[in-house]
Amino acid sequence: MITASPSLTDALFVLAHRPDGRRIIQGKVLRIGLGGAALLDLIVRGHASVIDGEVAAVLTGPVPSGLIGDLDRQIRAEPARRSAKHWVKRFRGVDLSDRVADEAAARGFVSSMTTVSLGLFAVVRHVPTARARDEIVTRVSEVLTGHRDPDDWDSALVALCRATRLVKKAFPGTTKARIEAVTGGGETADAVRKVIAQANAAVNNAIIATVNANNGSQGF
């Protein structure tokens, strides 16, 4: 049973998996994307702010629980403001996928199942619950087709989907112009929009570097 509204990390994790639990994108790419999603969760929820284009801790109010709280503490403990690129790199260094999977399962967005591959290797699949996947896909589809005005959450999620190459795979036919309209417009404040762009660029650059490294290791 779904017990809460999805975070950006929840939503990205759900969209990155097919209904049978297989990933649509590579695990490394997903981990990088989740690093960006975690940062944007903090910004959109008001646990971090943007000052002169850099991320700063919001020291008032309680620290949230779970993964987002652990990441919030990291920003609070940093003596100086840092760029979005810095935090995306820091957050993706943590094993986010398992943490996000556990919390998404606890909130009813996915269920985890273990199968055996080749009779030897245990493979864990994270199967999105039908309701969660339908609600997230429907919301993003409405935004991308112009039937829903995007808010900060929508703009951030679409930016993350673009950076991780999920838009073409999960929402085929979406035009570049519409993606630009969603990620650059709506009610998103200028400061938040800049950080979304920074986080999006950091995710995109990290993914390109990962792909190039993989190609080089294979002799391409």
Score class of each variant (00 low, 15 high):
Ile2Asp: 07
Thr3Met: 12
Ser5Trp: 12
Pro6Tyr: 02
Ser7Arg: 15
Thr9Ala: 07
Asp10Lys: 13
Ile25Gln: 03
Gln26Tyr: 09
Gly33Leu: 09
Leu34His: 06
Gly35His: 08
Gly36Glu: 09
Ala37Phe: 04
Ala38Cys: 10
Ala38Thr: 08
Asp41Arg: 03
Leu42Lys: 08
Arg45Thr: 11
Gly46His: 06
Val50His: 09
Asp52Arg: 15
Glu54Ala: 14
Val55Gly: 02
Val55Trp: 08
Ala56Gln: 10
Thr60Phe: 06
Thr60His: 07
Val63Tyr: 05
Ser65Val: 08
Gly66Asp: 12
Gly69Asp: 12
Gly69Trp: 11
Leu71Ser: 07
Ile75Val: 11
Glu78Ser: 14
Glu78Trp: 09
Arg81Val: 07
Arg81Phe: 10
Arg81Gly: 06
Ser83Phe: 09
Ala84Ile: 06
Lys85Phe: 13
His86Phe: 15
Trp87Ile: 04
Trp87Phe: 14
Val88Glu: 08
Arg90Ser: 09
Arg92Trp: 02
Val94Tyr: 11
Asp95Cys: 05
Val100Lys: 01
Ala106Pro: 01
Gly108His: 04
Met113Tyr: 05
Leu118Tyr: 10
Leu120Met: 11
Phe121Asn: 13
Ala122Gln: 10
Val123Pro: 02
Val123Asn: 09
Arg125Phe: 09
Arg125Gly: 11
Thr129Leu: 13
Ala130Met: 14
Ala130Lys: 14
Arg131Pro: 00
Arg131Met: 11
Ala132Pro: 01
Glu135Phe: 08
Thr138Met: 12
Thr138Ile: 03
Arg139Cys: 00
Arg139Ser: 01
Val140Phe: 02
Ser141Cys: 05
Glu142Ile: 02
Glu142Lys: 12
Val143Lys: 08
Thr145Arg: 02
Arg148Phe: 04
Asp151Asn: 15
Trp153Ile: 01
Leu157Tyr: 02
Val158Arg: 07
Ala159Ser: 14
Thr164Met: 04
Arg178Met: 12
Ile179Glu: 02
Val182Asn: 00
Thr188Phe: 00
Ala191Tyr: 03
Val192Gln: 11
Val192Leu: 08
Ile196Ser: 02
Val203Lys: 07
Asn204Pro: 01
Asn205Tyr: 13
Ile207Leu: 05
Ile208Asn: 14
Thr210Pro: 00
Ala213Asp: 15
Ser217Cys: 08
Ser217Glu: 14
Gln218Met: 13
